[in-house]
């Protein structure tokens, strides 16, 4: 089993704070891997390192055998890594369809001259892009909202739209940052079903951050646990659940977990 993504000893420091500390994770192709950990553990920061938003101080990130370190975010996306955000970051004043079209930006190649002249090739490309965008919207269940301005979508559908936008770049690895955060149980089920379909029908490898332990245990094949930037456990959901350090760091004080769910500490 060769890893599609191989994170090797990645370290990210903010001032005096080591947000990600010497973390190794391997993600197999067509797997669903979860990253869990208390708030402030460094999960989002690790995603930011993967997508080029942050440059790690040390370590190596190999995707498809090639290093991602030092690439710009758009170059990383071009390699086939796409992501969603913990706090939804859609292009608010664009319609759902336009959001997905921007997602396809780097798969479109018609020249700007041809856009001015509306050449037949450019028009064909635009039509194909629209068709593909509509397919993606249908895939996540938003086909009837294509023309809705995205800030006006209900919360849960905004999360689905973020997934559709990420799919626009035809990624082979999709990073989902707390895709079910703030969702009710039925919306969460819908999202997790979507995660499975992404893998089974589209063959996309999934790496996701999730807070809800029930969800994590049901959806993922492998779980990695971060605490204070360090990876403290990795394995199948059962193994992780049984791990003493995880129980101590994360599963133990369940009440506290509930309280801090929405307040990232600095």
């Amino acid at each position: 089993m060769t890893a599609l993504l191989s994170i090797q000893a990645v370290t990210k420091v903010f001032g005096g704070l080591t947000a990600v500390d010497n973390v190794d994770v391997d993600i197999a192709e067509r797997s669903i891997t979860s990253l869990i950990g208390p708030n402030g553990a460094g999960k989002t920061t690790l995603f930011n390192c993967l997508t080029g938003l942050h440059r790690p101080e040390a370590g190596e990130i190999l995707f498809d055998g090639r290093s991602l370190i030092g690439l710009r975010p758009d170059e990383i996306t071009a390699r086939g890594v796409a992501r969603t955000y913990q706090n939804i970051r859609l292009f608010g004043r664009m319609t759902a369809l336009e959001n997905v079209l921007v997602g396809q930006h780097l798969r479109l190649h018609a020249s700007h001259w041809s856009a001015i002249l509306r050449s037949t090739r450019q028009q064909a490309e635009e039509r194909a892009a629209r068709t593909f965008a509509l397919e993606l919207l249908a895939f996540v269940g938003l086909e009837s909202h294509a023309e809705v301005v995205s800030t006006n979508l209900p919360y849960g559908e905004q999360r689905l739209l973020e997934v559709a936008r990420a799919l626009g770049s035809r990624p082979s690895l999709l990073l989902l940052d707390e895709p079910a955060a703030g969702m009710n149980p039925s919306e969460t089920d819908r999202m997790m079903e979507l995660v499975h379909r992404l893998r089974d029908e589209m063959g996309i490898t999934i790496f996701l951050i999730e807070h809800d332990m029930k969800v994590v245990m049901s959806v993922s094949e492998t779980v990695a646990v971060l605490d204070y930037g360090e990876k403290i456990a990795e394995g199948t959901p059962e193994e992780v659940r049984a791990n003493a350090r995880v129980v101590e760091a994360y599963l133990g004080p369940e009440v506290v977990l509930q309280d801090t769910a929405d307040t990232p500490n600095l």
């Binding site: 938003l53 975010p73 758009d74 796409a82 970051r89 921007v102 856009a115 635009e126 626009g168």
Partner: peptide, 28 residues
């Protein structure tokens, strides 16, 4: 015409959220 093409969408995306636009594939 330009605004109605992929370039126009990239401009607008950049205006909405520069970081996300870049992570979505826009060459800033």
């Amino acid at each position: 015409r330009l605004n109605d093409s992929r370039l126009g969408r990239a401009w607008f995306a950049m205006q909405e959220d520069e970081d996300v636009a870049e992570a979505t594939g826009v060459h800033l």
